[in-house]
């Protein structure tokens, strides 16, 4: 059991006491400049532009116009669709990816099948955008391979029209969500020792007790973290959706690009910023929920 306790030690070890102040700590802070510079350029400044822009009228004066536009029913629909799309694909990815990771770990260590599956997953987890959209169109679109086979062999006509809507996006996103889950969750499952199960059984615990009291709590933080990663991954994905869904803007990233490039209804570019602000807020809420859960599981473990 001592091993277990070591494993679960808090992430932040007690810091060594500060030796010396002044220039010495200033000098060591120099090393962080690239990091903070990077964060400023790619996170803080863009976020500031988005937040400030969301509260400005076209002339530059303070205005609630763009924020109030978020209450429009089509915008709310887009946020609902985005959250549902991200939550569903994250859940599907987490469950199936988690199971696959567990299956891989229970196999013979270093087996060829494990190496193949992890290699394939590392590739597929990054396989998105136009390529992925095209792969699905070429397979399931109206002139796709599967559609043609169905037509020629079974006489079943499919147009594949669902592919270009939100349900289609769920299918397509799942394609990279499951491998991503395997990649990020595998190390956690690897950390499970067969001896712990043996110990549980020795002490008279059933399989249920093992999962409920030992493996479950151990894996929960990593599982939730991965789930959140998958959610954010789907929530912010743009290229895949843009390549597939061209005739409407059902999800928020597409609405943002639509607000910028619209040539029928010109002059709504600032709506893009309030939409982006909405996305930042939703991710913040999800991360807050995650922190709550994390706290709970920590208590659970304690």
């Amino acid at each position: 059991m001592t091993t277990t306790i070591d494993t679960l030690a808090p992430v932040s070890a007690p810091r060594p006491a500060r030796r010396g102040h002044g220039w010495r700590s200033a000098r060591s802070a120099i090393g962080t400049i690239p990091f903070f510079g990077y964060v400023a350029v790619f996170l803080i400044i863009p976020t500031a532009i988005v937040v400030i822009g969301a509260f400005r009228a076209p002339g530059g004066a303070f205005s609630w116009v763009n924020i109030l536009a978020l209450g429009d029913s089509t915008v709310i629909d887009a946020f609902v669709a985005s959250v549902v799309l991200s939550a569903v694909t994250a859940a599907i990815g987490a469950v199936f990816g988690g199971l696959l990771a567990y299956v891989l770990v229970t196999g013979r260590p270093g087996s060829i099948s494990r190496r193949i599956v992890t290699a394939v997953c590392s590739v597929l987890a990054q396989f998105g955008g136009v390529m992925l959209a095209f792969a699905f169109i070429a397979t399931l679109g109206s002139a796709g391979m599967i559609s043609n086979l169905l037509r020629d062999w079974l006489g079943v006509e499919t147009t594949g029209a669902y592919l270009y809507t939100v349900p289609g996006l769920i299918l397509v996103y799942t394609y990279f969500q499951i491998p991503l889950m395997v990649i990020v969750f595998l190390p956690a499952v690897d950390g499970i020792r067969a001896q712990w199960r043996e110990a549980t059984e020795t002490l008279g615990g059933s399989t249920w007790v093992y999962w409920r009291r030992v493996a479950g709590p151990l894996l929960a933080p990593a599982f939730l973290g991965s789930l959140l990663l998958l959610f954010a991954n789907a929530f912010s994905a743009y290229a895949t959706a843009a390549a597939l869904v061209t005739q409407s803007t059902p999800i928020v990233p597409l609405k943002i690009s639509g607000a910028i490039t619209n040539e029928v209804n010109v002059g709504h570019a600032d709506l893009a910023k309030s939409l982006a602000l909405g996305m930042v807020i939703i991710v913040a809420i999800v991360m807050w929920l995650y922190a709550l859960l994390q706290k709970r599981t920590a208590k659970w473990l304690g």
Binding site: F42, P253, L277, M279, V283, M287, Y290
Partner: peptide
């Protein structure tokens, strides 16, 4: 760390408007 990176992506994606 991955989540932090992704929230940057979300923010950066919105900034393309500017």
């Amino acid at each position: 760390a991955g989540i932090a990176a992704l929230s940057m992506v979300v923010a950066a994606c919105g900034s393309s408007g500017g």
